[in-house]
């Protein structure tokens, strides 16, 4: 796999923008590209960045009020009438509250309803645990027919939005509230179901998704200063999972770390563990939220507290590697 060329500037100097703003721009572009694209919101139009679409295409914007069950089921009806409905709310409410409606009227009904979950992860910040959606990856990736995408930055979010507008499938797009580094470039490839190879290394594989990919890449740079060369994969698409990319890297390093701003149970960590344990049993460490809820705090402060910033990730990985038996022991012992 060709290595993707990305911006590796430090957190302090790199340009930052919210992933949700990339969605807003992508939806506007998708709206220009097809008049079948319509947008529905449950009373969170600006914070989900749907206002750009609303202002450009007021005739294709539908305000449904604080009613997330109605949000996705009205969308299912619109999809049946031939439209491509994007629905937005905070992920805590959609898919948090309306999962059954999503299962029955979008996934099983196989309608191309797009569920856009804003404000995932603990970077939601001061609002606290009720509004920090950590279970969405697990909830959505178990649904047959559903595509699950967690872009790493605003540029990728824009691309992902335009791609799911035309994929003819029920799809979940995972966004985040806080500004995050914009490290991919306009010409960085993006394809649903394909991993992005960000760094080559033989010592350990680090697989990351969403907001954690930049942190994982920065952690890999810290590790390389300590002589640990990480193979870094970005999985924007969690379903369908790029199993080939994961298996190829795991075959090389025999050690896999996953990093996500979500519950590791059923999340990216769960997904990667399923693939590896079936095809290439490999020792793993899953970094993310470990069976607990979030709490109030500053976004960056919380990431630090939960060990999800680059220095913490680097420390966790090197400590884990040190504690493992040497590669000779694990492979030949």
């Amino acid at each position: 796999m060709r290595l993707a060329d990305v911006d590796t500037s430090d957190f302090a100097t790199i340009r930052q923008e919210t992933i949700r703003s990339g969605f807003g721009k992508g939806l506007l572009a998708a709206g220009r590209e097809s008049d079948r694209v319509v947008a529905l919101c449950a009373d969170l139009t600006e914070s989900t960045q749907m206002h750009l679409f609303r202002d450009a295409f007021p005739d294709r914007f539908i305000q449904v009020g604080v009613a997330e069950q109605n949000l996705v089921t009205v969308a299912a009806g619109l999809a049946h009438a031939g439209f491509i409905p994007f629905t937005t709310s905070y992920a805590a409410f959609s898919p948090g509250r309306n999962w059954e409606q999503i299962k029955t009227t979008a996934a099983l009904n196989d309608q191309p309803v797009k569920i856009v979950g804003a404000h995932t992860g603990i970077n939601v910040g001061p609002d606290g645990a009720t509004h920090q959606m950590l279970e969405d990856i697990a909830l959505m990736r178990v649904l047959p027919n559903m595509v699950v995408v967690a872009p790493a930055d605003s540029i990728e979010a824009e691309k992902a939005t335009r791609k799911i507008a035309v994929n003819d499938a029920p799809s979940y797009l995972r966004l985040a509230r806080d500004k995050t580094p914009v490290f991919t470039r306009p010409d960085t490839p993006f394809e649903i179901g394909k991993a992005l190879h960000l760094q080559r290394g033989n010592d350990v594989t680090i697989v990351a998704t969403g907001t954690m990919t930049y942190e994982a890449l920065a952690a890999a740079r810290i590790l390389s200063e300590r002589g640990i060369n990480a193979d870094v994969l970005h999985l924007a698409t969690i379903k369908p999972l790029d199993e080939d990319a994961i298996l190829a890297s795991a075959a090389l390093t025999r050690r896999v770390v996953t990093v996500e701003e979500a519950q590791i149970a059923g999340g990216l960590g769960g997904a990667v563990a399923e693939v590896l344990s079936e095809h290439l049993p490999t020792i793993m460490m899953r970094i993310g939220i470990r069976d607990r809820f979030g709490e109030s705090g500053g976004p960056r402060e919380l990431l630090d507290h939960f060990g999800l910033t680059a220095p913490h990730i680097a420390r966790s990985v090197s400590a884990w590697l040190e504690a493992l038996p040497s590669s000779g022991d694990t492979q030949r012992g």
Binding site: I62, Q69, N70, T73, V74, A75, A76, G77, L78, A79, H80, A81, G82, F83, P85, E100, Q101, T104, T105, L108, N109
Partner: peptide, 19 residues
């Protein structure tokens, strides 16, 4: 449509009627 879990038909019909 696909239905069974109750309460979602009126919304889907409304979505279609909106279209």
């Amino acid at each position: 449509s696909t239905s069974g879990p109750l309460g979602s038909g009126l919304s889907q019909a409304a979505g279609y009627a909106y279209a």
